[in-house]
Design a protein around this nucleic acid. Structure first.
Lengths: 159, 159
DNA sequence: TGAAGTGCTGGTCATGTTGTCCAGCTGAAA
DNA sequence: TTTCAGCTGGACAACATGACCAGCACTTCA
């Protein structure tokens, strides 16, 4: 389940240059192609690498505004609220967190004005008691995984 | 900059089956290969598709605990705090938000106990006045983009 | 100590895909 | 009407893939 340094190098390499194939990867890593292929297969069936889906930029799609909303949910309404939020395309992500009946969700919108519409749609649901929204101004650290992979690989010099 | 329905179908197709190539894609979409290739190239140079990096699961890497920390930053310390947080591998993401000097960051840790170590490291920095942490218990809506892409494609029947 | 198992190497092969052309067609804009 | 961008369907050489294989080193375990 844990990864060794070769696995780490594979993931980092793929993160930096996703278009390279297994053959090119094996050349860069200095291992046989079969090895690179076997490692990659294992990382995927392990679930360490979940996939290679396209990373889509909501801003380029016309949704340049991102916000995080903290929702307080009425006791027992959790499942209903989840189902409701899942139907809103602008809800990109939803988590339930510690702190009785709280949820945190990531939203996008076409503009600040449009964000009001999105929030109204999100909170316009019975089970939601209270909502507070924080609009994202900057994103100094975009979602990243490389440092963590490197640390995980270091911690286990061999599997 | 906006996408049409063909673009939308390309993104959705890639999101669902990332391993297919341009040729297979063109077969599924019922267009010529050159068309699919040109669209894909355009989506990438547009920035709509930022890349095809591996989607790594921190849990499978040994970091099953996720948390969001809201940080209050001392006036003027923003840049220093960002630099500090960027050096912590467990900080996967960092945003600055509305509300004077606030930041929101996503953390992972090996366990709840380990989370304490991570938080100590995160907040053990002069510019941070106060921090409140919410531990993620469930993730009913994992980061998704397909519904938004479909909406964006609908809104613009043609480019 | 020996045997079995695992993982890596370096190699082959047929097959499919890619990058790069091309000429011709259509529809929209000038 | 002319021009242009975008799509089609086709071609080609170069390359990558999946599937094999025998051989070797190392560890596990009886």
């Amino acid at each position: 389940m844990a990864i060794d340094q070769l696995d780490g190098r594979i993931i980092v390499l793929l993160a930096r240059e996703p278009r390279i194939g297994v053959l090119e990867m094996s050349r860069r890593l200095g291992v046989a192609r079969g090895t690179a292929q076997a490692r990659l297969d294992r990382l995927q069936s392990n679930g360490v690498i979940r996939g290679f889906g396209p990373q889509v930029d909501p801003a380029a799609l016309g949704y340049p505004v991102t916000a995080f909303a903290t929702l307080q949910i009425r006791q027992g309404q959790g499942p209903d609220v989840r189902a409701h939020l899942a139907t809103v395309p602008e809800v990109l992500e939803l988590h339930t967190t510690t702190g009785g009946g709280d949820m945190l969700c990531r939203l996008v919108a076409r503009s600040n004005a449009d964000l009001q519409r999105v929030i109204d749609r999100v909170v316009g649901f019975d089970g939601i008691v209270r909502a507070s929204t924080a609009i994202v101004m900057e994103n100094p650290v975009p979602l990243r995984i490389i440092p963590l992979v490197e640390q995980a690989a270091e911690d286990r010099p061999s599997e």
